[in-house]
């Protein structure tokens, strides 16, 4: 069986063909770089995503701070991760890289801030 996937690792979005031998990846073609190869191998077995969202900020120049998972988490954990952040409030100031929540949804991955929000 062959599968056609679009690499999402960078905006070029290579079309990658994966030849499957049962559950094993037999051959990968169409990727411009090694990241594409690694991506499709993971995508056909255990897909992962980086999640970006916002958390509410109290006492800041704006009411929300952008955050991300510090690494990728399993795709099926995305909604659980979002839920864990929904009612969270942080105090301004917020700095890029601040850990907002440790080990989100038991993924072993932390949520970190991606914007600077000054007191306001």
């Amino acid at each position: 069986m062959t599968r056609e996937l679009t690499c999402i690792c960078c905006p070029i979005g290579c079309s990658i063909t994966v030849e499957m031998n049962g559950n094993e990846v037999a051959y990968v073609s169409g990727n411009n770089c090694p990241r594409g190869d690694a991506y499709v191998r993971k995508e056909v077995t255990a897909p992962q995503r980086t999640v970006t969202t916002t958390v509410a900020v109290d006492g800041g120049e704006s009411a929300a701070a952008s955050v991300k998972t510090q690494g990728e988490i399993p795709k099926e954990k995305i909604m659980e991760c979002i839920k864990a952040l929904r009612d969270l409030h942080v105090e301004a100031p917020v700095h890029i890289g601040d850990v907002i929540l440790k080990n989100v949804a038991d993924t072993g991955v932390d949520i970190v801030a991606t914007s600077n929000i000054a007191k306001g």
């Binding site: 960078c10 980086t50 969202t53 952008s66 991606t114 914007s115 600077n116």
Partner: peptide, 25 residues
């Protein structure tokens, strides 16, 4: 970029995937 909080910025420039505000910073 301050409102583009998704990631995917800067792979070519910084060889890592940043969100918009991080890239701008």
């Amino acid at each position: 970029l301050n409102q583009c909080i998704h990631n995917g910025f800067g792979l070519h420039t910084f060889k890592e995937e940043l969100t918009g505000p991080e890239y701008a910073d």
